[in-house]
């Protein structure tokens, strides 16, 4: 654990100096959680009370008629379990494929020498400028024309059109310029001498990627995992356009289920809480490796 904590003078002065830091950290913590606390608390209140409490500190306090009614209503309205499962599958597969595909590309772009690689990197980063919404419709039209090989009994059959599948929610988001860029930046901080040494020992490029560079890149992998996971978990425009079958829909589409003539805000808060908690748990599980793994990775040069 030889990380960066600032070495400080004496133990007593150190304790004293830490007090303002702690106060600041706690104050900030309040600032960051209060809207989420509002969401959580409201999820237990009936709508009429949420709005009665809105202008006062009561909005953050579990007071009044609390119940799980909103949660039971959520399950009546949305197949929440199914949606959660779909989102987990879609997000997880995209994350895994994305890590492999993007790190491979970044490896070739940052550690190997071949003509055109700088241009390609610029082109890949340039793709970030175009927001997804602006080409979503042409993409719908296009994925509906794409072919797919399907195992039909014992022989392969060629089918056309990707609508109403998991893959149409996964494959368009696997290659990701952000991820390539992040891996690229990270790989550059790993000394190239390691490659040279391995080459001398007869290692293949792929071997260097797999056995030297990737094992050193835990934090980059974790960052990319989160970076890929969050937008996948939150996507709703695309699934709505390409998935007609309710059984394949992800969680964020479910939010739309609550916006009827009368919006049920309490249920929205309950549903939001339900879909936020798994992500938070995931981050908690990840963050140790995410932030602390480098200490032992020996990227000291």
């Amino acid at each position: 654990m030889a990380t960066t904590p600032t070495p400080a003078p004496g133990p007593r002065r150190r304790t004293l100096r830490r007090i303002p830091g702690h106060l600041l950290r706690s104050a900030l913590a309040l600032l960051f959680v209060f809207p989420v606390v509002f969401m959580l608390i409201s999820s237990f209140k009936p709508d009429q009370q949420i709005f009665a409490d809105l202008g006062s500190i009561k909005a953050f306090l579990p007071v009044g008629q609390l119940s799980l009614d909103n949660y039971t209503a959520v399950f009546d309205r949305v197949p929440a379990g199914r949606f959660l499962l779909n989102s987990i599958v879609i997000s997880a597969v995209t994350v895994v494929l994305g890590i492999v595909v993007n790190s491979l590309a970044a490896f070739a772009l940052s550690r190997m020498r071949w003509p055109g690689r700088r241009l390609l990197l610029v082109l890949i980063i340039a793709t970030l400028i175009v927001p997804f919404e602006t080409f979503a419709l042409p993409l719908v039209w296009w994925v509906n024309k794409l072919p797919w090989l399907e195992l039909n009994g014992f022989h392969l059959a060629l089918t056309e059109g990707w609508l109403d599948t998991y893959r149409v929610q996964i494959l368009p988001f696997v290659a990701n310029a952000f991820s390539v860029f992040l891996f690229h930046q990270y790989f550059q901080s790993i000394p190239k001498e390691l490659d040279e040494a391995a080459r001398m020992d007869g290692a293949s490029w792929f071997g260097i990627y797999r056995r030297i560079v990737m094992p050193l890149s835990g934090p980059a992998v974790a960052t990319v995992a989160i970076l890929t996971f969050l937008p996948m978990w939150n996507s709703y425009l695309w699934p709505l356009m390409v998935v007609q079958d309710e059984n394949l829909r992800p969680v964020m589409v479910g939010i739309q289920y609550f916006f009827q003539l009368n919006v049920s805000w309490g249920q929205i808060m309950a549903y939001s809480t339900m879909i936020t908690v798994p992500v938070l748990a995931l981050f908690l599980a990840f963050q140790r490796s995410f932030i602390n793994s480098i200490a032992s990775s020996g990227v000291k040069g």
Partner: peptide, 13 residues
């Protein structure tokens, strides 16, 4: 090798 490594990402993009 480099070409092989970038091609999945490039193809998907």
């Amino acid at each position: 090798t480099a070409l092989g490594m970038v091609s999945p990402a490039v193809l998907l993009l």
